[in-house]
Simulated scan of single mutants.
Amino acid sequence: MRGIKFAARNRGSVRDVTPTHAARQAADDPLSSASKIASLIATAARLRQSSGSPLRGRNLALLHTHTRADGTPGNSALQGAAEELGARVALLNFAHPSSPADTGSDVIALARMLGRMYDGIDCHDLDAAVLRTIELHAGVPVFPGLALDTHPARVIADLWALCERQTPADRRIVFIGNGRRPRARMFVAAARAMGVAILPKSRVDPGAEDASAVADASQPRHWVLWFEGSAIEGDALQENHRRVMQAVLVHTLAGA
């Protein structure tokens, strides 16, 4: 592969691609149905109580374009989440080809090689065209940045954080912010799929009866979730996100 270079650590063993793996693409939308969302949350809740090692023997490749000063790929929250469940994780630094003419064939060759070495591939910050090519040719599940805020795992984790603090009959969420942004659209879609009422408002009166659960997305890069007038702690939100990421991995790679 002339145009693409990558640095790897902790590679898994070489393996063959089968039709079963090709059919289990991670492009299956976690938000496609209420039952899928509920199943992911149920698995995440079980993992919160006892993680175990459901991914033992599975190999996961994490592709990144950003590196540390020493030229190796940066660490990832996804790495820790996967390794906690027994997976073997390789951090791979993806360097874009210097010549656009090399992109197609080199990415296809890379995708096929990774598909033989790993059970799944996460493309953290790759271009959409490169991601799509890897999805088409790897033959194993490919995640479009599972740890990113733009992945459905994040909005499912946020929804879970608010819903678990409410009784099923009282579940409604006040949403503040631009509802047209990708993360907001996914959040609203997931909530409505689960039968949770979404009340869009420009601002909220903390004493309002309908404001017990609030998703404040007025700062798109820094959402704040409120319940009964208090912001939910960041550590609790990150724990939920980690568990939902693990649930996605378990469902996709272990067939749970």
Rank of each mutant, 00 (worst) to 15 (best):
D216N: 13
L131Y: 14
L237C: 09
D106E: 13
N178E: 10
D158T: 08
L47F: 03
I37R: 04
H96F: 15
L40T: 01
S53H: 04
S105L: 07
E228F: 00
I108H: 03
D235S: 15
A193F: 03
A44C: 08
M1W: 09
I108E: 02
L136I: 11
G86P: 07
R185P: 05
R165Q: 11
R11P: 09
L110W: 03
R185W: 03
T72Y: 03
A153R: 01
S39T: 02
F143R: 06
P73V: 12
A27Q: 06
G71Y: 03
A190L: 06
R242M: 10
L40P: 00
T103E: 12
G12Y: 00
I176N: 12
R9E: 01
V89R: 14
L253S: 04
A157F: 11
D28K: 11
T67C: 11
A45C: 09
T65A: 12
L62R: 05
G12W: 00
F94W: 10
A138P: 02
A7T: 13
S35A: 10
A215C: 10
Q49D: 05
L253T: 05
A42R: 06
R192V: 15
V130I: 13
H124F: 08
N10G: 07
S76P: 15
P144L: 06
Q246N: 06
V188W: 00
G115A: 04
L159Q: 07
L199N: 02
H151L: 08
M113Q: 15
L55W: 01
G229A: 13
T252H: 10
S33L: 10
R183I: 08
A8S: 15
D125P: 12
H251W: 06
Q166T: 14
V250H: 00
A169H: 05
A8L: 14
R56N: 07
M117Q: 15
G195T: 06
E83P: 06
L253V: 07
D16E: 02
V214D: 00
T103D: 14
H241I: 08
H96K: 08
S53G: 01
S202H: 09
R46I: 02
S99L: 14
P100E: 09
V196L: 12
S76K: 10
R15P: 06
P152M: 14
L249N: 01
R116N: 12
H64N: 13
P54Y: 09
P168S: 04
A138S: 13
A23D: 06
D29Q: 12
V188Q: 01
S51D: 02
A109V: 04
L47A: 00
A256E: 15
A111V: 04
I232A: 10
L62I: 14
H251I: 06
A157S: 10
H64I: 00
G52L: 07
T167H: 11
T167K: 15
V244W: 01
Q219M: 15
L146E: 01
G57Y: 03
A109Q: 05
V130C: 09
R88M: 11
L62C: 10
D119N: 13
R58C: 11
S32W: 04
